[in-house]
């Protein structure tokens, strides 16, 4: 639910440990106390507990038995689980990469031409993120309906035969992914257009003096200038992609077969439907580690290319 940009932003700003003004003040602990107590009690402690439970084979009802790292081994050996993680990585393309490309295309154009009324467009582009994911999911379920869904009717105007978007093994995952693209392309576009306006025009002038065409200008000036924004957009959308639960729960329940099953959905169904609580905790922890690694990775790369 929360935003990940801070990690990136913080590292760019310099060390978060940079000295705050003023003298040392013990009273700081007091100010920190309420936030820390809730945070430790309902995020840190559960996280530790999750790691602990993940080492047990537990059905959630009767006493568990020690499993060591078996549940983690299962993440790699169990076909369903492995598939779920692969699906999550494929969804990254739709949630993160595709919106980024769309945003970059727009930023590339906007670097060379002023567009008025940007505030209005921003407001509209952001709208899908504001609408509850449950509603977005329902909306798209109706659009994807095979018999008289909006998409198939639209394609019908061009004589293209409709598809069973959510029911076809090969189409279901991309179809779910495109809903993610729908929600997040606005984020990427707004972030990148804002970023591109901050690039000093002198850099473009210099590039043009050197005889750079639009494409080289994009590569030489726009892209490096947007490094920070790209990292933020990627981090945010990556996290959203990996914790994707409600969308899958509502549209496909992981089907057809297991074609759209994702780790977040596996956590729910293992923990609360099929009584594999230890395994569910292991999946959740693995997911956290992956989010952690990818976020750090993105920001390392963004920093290095400075």
């Amino acid at each position: 639910m929360a935003v990940a940009a801070p990690l990136e932003a913080a590292s760019r700003e310099g060390s978060p440990g940079e000295r705050p003004p003023g003298e040392p003040r013990l009273v700081g602990y007091l100010y920190l106390l309420p936030a820390f107590v809730v945070f430790a009690g309902f995020v840190l402690y559960p996280l530790y507990r999750a790691a602990y439970i993940s080492l047990w084979d537990w059905d959630g009802l009767t006493a568990g038995t020690w499993a060591g790292f078996d549940n983690y081994a299962e993440v790699f050996t169990d076909e369903d689980l492995r598939a779920a993680f692969v699906h999550a990585l494929i969804l990254l393309l739709f949630y993160a990469v595709l919106p980024l490309l769309i945003g970059l295309a727009l930023a590339g154009v906007m670097a060379r031409a002023r567009v008025r009324g940007l505030a209005f467009f921003r407001a509209v582009l952001f709208l899908p993120q504001v609408v509850a994911m449950v509603v977005v999911a329902l909306m798209w379920k109706m659009i994807y309906q095979p018999t008289d869904g909006a998409l198939n009717r639209f394609l019908g105007w061009f004589g293209i035969e409709g598809r069973s978007w959510l029911g076809d093994f090969n189409l279901a995952l991309p179809s779910v992914g495109l809903v993610g693209t729908y929600v997040y392309f606005g984020l990427a576009m707004v972030l990148l257009t804002a970023g591109v306006q901050k690039i000093p025009t002198s850099l473009y002038d210099a590039a043009r003096v050197d005889g750079a065409g639009p494409f080289r200008e994009f590569l030489a000036v726009t892209l490096p200038g947007l490094r920070g924004e790209i990292a933020v957009a990627l981090t945010l959308t990556t996290i959203y992609a990996l914790r994707n639960f409600d969308l899958v729960y509502i549209t496909t329940s992981g089907g057809p077969g297991n074609a759209t099953s994702v780790p977040a959905f596996q956590v729910f169904s293992r923990a609360f439907e099929s009584g594999q609580v230890g395994s569910a905790a292991a999946v959740g922890i693995t997911l956290t580690v992956i989010i952690f690694i990818i976020s750090l990775g993105i920001n390392r790369i963004a920093e290095r290319s400075t």
């Binding site: 602990y52 537990w58 009767t62 006493a63």
Partner: peptide, 20 residues
């Protein structure tokens, strides 16, 4: 530090046998 604080417990669900 945190995990040390939290200490180690028994098997999850272990105290619930009376419920079954």
């Amino acid at each position: 530090a945190l995990s040390a604080l939290a200490g180690c417990g028994g098997a999850p669900g272990g105290g619930d046998e009376d419920k079954a």
